[in-house]
Design a protein around this nucleic acid. Sequence first.
DNA 1: CGATTTATTGAAGAAACTCAACTCGAGTGG
DNA 2: CCACTCGAGTTGAGTTTCTTCAATAAATCG
Lengths: 232, 232
Amino acid sequence: MNASQVLRSKFERVLALTEEEREAIAALPLHVVEVKADEIILREGVPATRSSLLIEGLACSSKGLGNGRRQILAFHIPFDMPDLVSFLLEVRDCDILALTDCSLAYVEHRDLLALCTAQPRLALDLWRTTLVDAAVHREWTLNVGQREGLSRLAHVFCEMMTRMELIGRARDKSCALPLTQQELAEATGQSSVHVNRTLQELRRRELLSFVRGQLTIHDWDGLVALAEFRTE
Amino acid sequence: MNASQVLRSKFERVLALTEEEREAIAALPLHVVEVKADEIILREGVPATRSSLLIEGLACSSKGLGNGRRQILAFHIPFDMPDLVSFLLEVRDCDILALTDCSLAYVEHRDLLALCTAQPRLALDLWRTTLVDAAVHREWTLNVGQREGLSRLAHVFCEMMTRMELIGRARDKSCALPLTQQELAEATGQSSVHVNRTLQELRRRELLSFVRGQLTIHDWDGLVALAEFRTE
DNA sequence: CGATTTATTGAAGAAACTCAACTCGAGTGG
DNA sequence: CCACTCGAGTTGAGTTTCTTCAATAAATCG
């Protein structure tokens, strides 16, 4: 699937596109690049002039602190536009980082703006996706702020499994999720040592297994209950 | 200042409005209501059919957990549209709660949508404010996830002072901020006992005082440094 | 195969929590 | 006007959760 098709099917998940809209999407200039694991895709603090569409791979948004601590704010999977949230803002407020080798397409903000002006329905749908992203942010704040270690981790797994299923990358509650324990720690605001022990507890309770980047959930209902995950 | 003027001056902070835009704003149906402290303005889980504009008072967004724990996700002050973030979404994902007696104006989503269609510049500006809200959410996730208790609280105070200054409600780094320690606890993911001790430490270091809902910052630079607050 | 990253374990310690009692201040009603 | 009540703030003590440090084991990569 090429970049333009990815973008189109992203819209088509919600909208029935008109011929005109389809053409406008196809005409949007996309610049496809490959990024190696651990490279920064877009850096915090620089002017926000373009957004990216993730075609393949796993990425994250993160913000660092002076003492070297870092918080992962969201994971990004194919079909996501990781930094549409900085569209219309002057400056990026967080890093976008490739966690695995990624294939992605850049869209210049000025082209995106032109698309929005010409196709109001598409603009509204893009706006809506940024609002969904914001809702996920709120869930993460709740997660990190109020849940205990065990359910915090459980919640991340519930979210990722749900999203992977939505894009057809999961089967029988099992999917590839190539995250290290260190990365899970940065996403949940815990130390990696504690994540390790918490993972063992999740395994011991036979809720899931997470081995070499493969997540398999054995007891979905149990995990959902533990995480207080809300399926919408 | 009436509700319509509040809305207009919200736009005018960034845009130079045309006559037509001004008229469109004035024509937007607003339904002004008064809400008592501790009442729920808009409830989680119900269909999102309208948004609110805060005219006067202090409110917050919050999400609860089964065990009674609650996370405050954002504070809202006059000129904010606390739940524009649920515009275009089917269902509200968090409660909006009045922390003091509030005066606010409801806007029906269908009217807002009509305004957006007719006035694309206003639509983009509203979209932009939701993106700013999302950026603040990200900062909060970082705050709750990675900062230690002392700088976590410091960061909340830096943010609120900056915002109060922006709307002209602060003078000499002092402003009314009628929050209880319990509410600060729910915003920072700490227990109220710990907030109490942390506040004492902030006072002891002569960074600020926070007495009976009045925040006064004595050493702004020191507080900013402790919080690693980024002034944009 | 060796080098490097990732995962696991133990132990000590720090940060923050809970519980419970007590103080203080603001408002209320007798 | 004072006693009372109620909510908020403060304090102490014991406990839990999670962190840090450091060492080892296992997996992955070139």
